[in-house]
Amino acid sequence: MADNFIMADSVLLIDNLCKSYVKGKPVNDHISLSLGLGEIFGLLGPNGAGKTTLVSQIIGLAKPDSGRITIDDVDIIAKPGYARQACSFQAQTQVPINGLTAIQAIELVGRVRGGDTKTVRARAQELLHHLEMEEWTKKSAETFSGGMRRLVAFCMAAVVPGKIVILDEPTNDIDPLRRRLLWQEVRNLVAMGSSVLLVTHNVLEAERAVDRLAIIDKGKVVSMGTPASLKGNGGRNMRFELTLEPQAAIPDFPEFILNTAVTGRRLIGRMGEADISAAVQWARNLKDNGIAEEYSVGPASLEDVYLKVVGHNETPETNAKEADHDAVAA
């Protein structure tokens, strides 16, 4: 077993995991990672990268072809029941709550997870209060928007949290205000003693929320570490971005701009602080000559790393990006 992915006090350990649904087409290809006690760990990757398949194996919905998954040193491939008790899970799909009110749905899962009636009720009401959802407490789920159903699903995962809380795209469809509140609740889960495995392709949210992360692409872990360590990249800690005029040909980057990526009309690269003025001069020339529409220089973001490692075909989720920025920054 390679040791570089193991955290001290790991609660979840995944070692060399392989899974394919069609022979010769691995969905998870020798994945190794660990989730530390009290850690928020992000699993990032484009659609179809194998993130949800990995989660499915952790909670016993799918069986690996090879490799090991342990929770508290218990082999949960052999004992999937232990994983279901140890993990509370917010699925990417909608939860079956039609006919139930928000409070009924949350309380039922809390009771199923072993909580007593009184404690579960108090915790459910606390979550609804924290997420400013009181007015939906006794409304039937049929009247909920997609975002509201997702928030209820989060509460169902958080009401009696497992040792590990797995959140699969928890903020999809949720408004910016409640995203902020939801991230606060995620941090509360950690304060209550849980570790969080966050599955997302929203890079900006992940950057603000996670302690460590792994980027998965085509079933493999292509990068892993803290957001800061992934962004460090040998002193090239500045991000350069250029937007071309429509129809303009892609110019050659100067030598000091490295790790370049092109997505549509956007050109992105990394450089050191010493090269800022030269980069600005180069960009200004392009703008004066009608090649570039605008440019910017700023601190590198995880998005740059993400774009670099998953290639040029994937654009990270940028919808509601401005709103996210405020929400996650809270």
Binding site: G60, L61, F89, T93, V112
Partner: peptide, 16 residues
């Protein structure tokens, strides 16, 4: 219908 909607993926993840 429930399989298509992913209902079982959620229900089977509960400790029941």
């Amino acid at each position: 219908d429930s399989k298509t909607a992913g209902t079982f993926d959620y229900i089977w993840s509960l400790p029941v």
